[in-house]
């Protein structure tokens, strides 16, 4: 069994911090960390924040964006909580990227406990786990927003808000980031969706730049092969893909829209799932985005 405790806890002083962190307001005097500190990994780094209660859409988009950025050797900094944070760490790891987690508690306190595996995976993949608190400090309500200043402070490129409610920690982080002079990006969401209200608010009030593709954050001309998927010889398959491109649908809705009966349709969907063209979850069929 892999135990993260075998990684030694080290301490780093303010003078050795990456330059972008030194200048922030309330900069901590020192930080505890596990892993191998190297200021190079912060040269190209992005903070990703968002709701703990992520929607399927948020999950898909953060997966897509973070993976694309991680491939381009951008370090992903996030807060290790469940929801968007965990998803961002995971997507970065999946692409072999470096990811940094800033905890809201001490380094020996595992919050949330489900993320134990993620903890040592980050360390094994040259990442860092950072905290400004003593090693056994229990996270509290105020310590989470506290650590957010470090999350955004460490980033060189800015912060990306994936999904956020109107009164959420993510909006607080966005405000802190602005005060630190960082760039703030936000992904737009569906109107009326509670976890999109915050991000849409940021965009509407010019508090954040709208992001619709990873290139908006970091440009390095790479052509996405998204469109290639929509070419298929089978007319029914094309019809299904066309409908799914608009929104995810349940089997019945698909049946009504395409006019094909459920027996034939479910046979087809199974085949398409096998070919990784679609994903089924919670009774709905989604277009496979990755």
């Amino acid at each position: 069994m892999n135990n993260f405790r075998k990684w030694e806890i080290k301490k780093i002083d303010k003078k050795d911090f990456p330059p972008q962190l030194k200048v922030i307001k309330n900069c901590p005097e020192f930080l505890y960390y596990r892993g191998n500190w190297d200021n190079k990994i912060f040269e190209k780094s992005l903070a990703v924040v968002g709701s703990r209660r992520m929607s399927r859409y948020g999950q898909e988009i953060s997966k897509k964006m973070v993976s694309e950025l991680a491939v381009q050797k951008i370090s992903i900094i996030s807060g290790f909580m469940y929801g968007v944070d965990t998803q961002s760490h995971l997507s970065a790891l999946e692409m072999g990227g470096i990811t940094i987690a800033v905890l809201g508690g001490g380094l020996n306190v595992l919050t949330p406990p489900e993320n134990e595996k993620l903890y040592w995976q980050i360390l094994e993949n040259k990442g860092l786990i950072i905290s400004e608190y003593e090693k056994d400090f229990q996270p509290t309500l105020w310590s989470f927003p506290q650590r957010n200043r470090i999350v955004s402070g460490l980033s060189s490129l800015g912060i990306l808000v994936v999904e956020a409610g109107l009164k959420s920690g993510s909006l607080v982080t966005a405000r802190i980031a602005r005060e630190q002079g960082k760039k703030v990006w936000a992904i737009p969401g569906q109107i009326g969706c509670s976890v999109a209200e915050g991000t849409n608010y940021l965009i509407k009030n010019n508090l954040a730049k709208m992001v619709t593709e990873s290139g908006d954050i970091f440009k390095k001309s790479s052509k996405t092969n998204q469109e290639v998927i929509f070419e298929s010889l089978d007319p029914l398959e094309n019809l299904i893909l066309k409908e799914l491109k608009v929104e995810a649908l349940s089997m019945d809705e698909l049946s009504i829209k395409s006019g094909v009966d459920v027996v034939q349709l479910s046979t087809k969907i199974s085949m398409m799932a096998l070919e990784e063209k679609v994903v089924e979850e919670n009774g709905k069929v989604y277009l496979n985005s990755v």
């Binding site: 027996v263 479910s266 046979t267 969907i269 199974s270 085949m271 799932a273 096998l274 979850e281």
Partner: peptide
Amino acid sequence: KHVAEALQYRVKHE
């Protein structure tokens, strides 16, 4: 085609 339809009724949890 029968197998493909049966696949629809498997456990689809991640």
